[in-house]
C-alpha cells in the first residue's frame, strides 16, 4: 500500500504529540546520584592503591580492574539490569556499565556454545567502543605526531 510522504509526515507529527515523554527530571536525578556514587567508589579504590604505593597515574589500571570485576559480578548475579532500570546512564556510562555490556551478551548466548556464543557475542556492544576508541586514539596520535 503506497502512502504519500505528506500523510507519513502528518502521522509522525501526530505521534510525536501523543508520545509519552520519559520522566527526564527523575531520570537525571537518579543518573546523577548512582553515577556519582560509582565514581566515588572508584575514588576510594584508587586512593587505596595509591596508599599501598602505586603512583596516582598507575593506580588507574587496577582501579578499573576492580570496578570491572564488580560490574561483571553484579551482572552475573542479575542485579545490574535492575540497577540500570533506575539509574539509566548512571550505571551505563561508568566503566562498570562497560563490564555489564560484556557479561550480559556473553551470558545470554552461552547456550549457543563457548566459541560462537560466549566468545563471539561478548563484544557485541563493547566491541564498537574499543574499535572507535582505539581508532580515534591512533588518529589523534598520528595528528600529534605530524605536528611534532
Amino acid at each position: 500500500m503506497t502512502i504519500k510522504e505528506k500523510e507519513k509526515q502528518n502521522y509522525q507529527e501526530r505521534f510525536n504529540q501523543v508520545k509519552p515523554k520519559p520522566p527526564i527530571f527523575k531520570n537525571i536525578i537518579w543518573a546523577f546520584i548512582i553515577g556519582g556514587l560509582i565514581c566515588t567508589l572508584g575514588q576510594y579504590i584508587q586512593d587505596y592503591f595509591v596508599s599501598i604505593g602505586f603512583s596516582k597515574k598507575d593506580a588507574g589500571g587496577p582501579t578499573s580492574a576492580v570496578l570491572i570485576f564488580l560490574g561483571a559480578f553484579f551482572t552475573g548475579l542479575g542485579v545490574y539490569d535492575e540497577l540500570g532500570r533506575l539509574a539509566g546512564a548512571g550505571s551505563i556510562v561508568p566503566i562498570t556499565g562497560f563490564a555489564n555490556s560484556i557479561v550480559a551478551p556473553a551470558m545470554e548466548w552461552k547456550r549457543e556454545g563457548y566459541v560462537f556464543g560466549v566468545g563471539a557475542k561478548m563484544f557485541t556492544i563493547a566491541g564498537p567502543v574499543i574499535v572507535y576508541g582505539t581508532v580515534t586514539a591512533m588518529l589523534v596520535g598520528f595528528i600529534r605526531w605530524l605536528m611534532g
Binding site: R85, G88, V103, A104, E108
Partner: peptide
Amino acid sequence: ERQYRFPTELGVQRPPI
C-alpha cells in the same frame, strides 16, 4: 528481547512508549 532488542541482563531503561 534477545532477538529483537538487547540481552536481558543489560542495564538499559525501557522508554515509556
